[in-house]
């Protein structure tokens, strides 16, 4: 009984001492490691293409976590399968386990890029973003435009990936047909880059 009482008293001492122990998280005051950010951008390890992401999702890559940083309304409207919605203002409150591969995306990529920098400043180094965002997902995965001279093997590969996610590749030869078929598939042609 004496031992149990001692245990209880030790727990109380440790518990009551906790409010005076200062901040728990070592990572909170961590600043931006600009060198590693510059290196990641330079080497291209900061981003991943929509098609690569599609292959990761299809192959059920262990620890993959796809995060949509847009608003809940936009997320409900259209999102990449398996994605979870963490709006950009909620991102700093989320927890990310070290073994996870975090893939961020937004509508066209700018917000996802900014979210990537935010996560870096929190010490999350295992994140990447999709540069073209959901728009790239539509153009590269769901409704990719196949050139007329594409090899049968490559075409089968693109076909399979597109069909896996419920899309269908478009066949085109010239620039003009791109716009026409984009209009047919119900999407607006967009300007590249952001």
């Amino acid at each position: 009984m004496k031992f149990v009482r001692q245990l209880g008293i030790s727990a109380l001492v440790l518990g009551l001492g906790a409010p005076f122990a200062g901040s728990l998280f070592r990572t909170q005051p961590r600043g931006l490691d600009l060198d590693s950010i510059a290196r990641a951008i330079d080497e291209g390890t900061d981003h991943v293409s929509a098609r690569q992401l599609a292959e990761w999702i299809r192959d059920r890559r262990p620890g993959l976590r796809v995060i949509d940083v847009r608003s809940p309304a936009e997320f409900r409207d259209d999102a990449i399968p398996t994605a979870e919605n963490v709006p950009i203002d909620q991102l700093t409150k989320s927890h990310f386990a070290p073994g996870q591969t975090i893939v961020l995306y937004s509508q066209e990529g700018a917000h996802a890029g900014q979210a990537w920098v935010m996560l870096r400043s929190l010490g999350v180094t295992q994140a990447v973003f999709v540069p073209g965002g959901l728009a790239d997902w539509h153009e590269e995965v769901l409704y990719p435009l196949l050139p007329a001279n594409v090899s049968p093997a490559e075409r089968a590969q693109i076909d399979a990936l597109s069909h896996y996610f419920g899309g269908a590749p478009r066949i085109g030869a010239e620039q003009g047909s791109d716009v026409a078929s984009a209009a047919m598939s119900g999407q607006r042609p967009r300007r590249r880059g952001c």
Binding site: L14, A18, A21, G22, L24, F25, R26, H95, A97
Partner: peptide, 26 residues
């Protein structure tokens, strides 16, 4: 719960591991 909580708090505070890396389920 008490042992785990105090261990996680003080372990993190004393720098034995990084508490921010703990996965908290949604």
């Amino acid at each position: 719960m008490l042992t785990a909580m105090l261990g996680a708090f003080w372990g993190g505070r004393l720098g034995m591991f990084d508490s921010a890396a703990f996965y908290v389920p949604d």
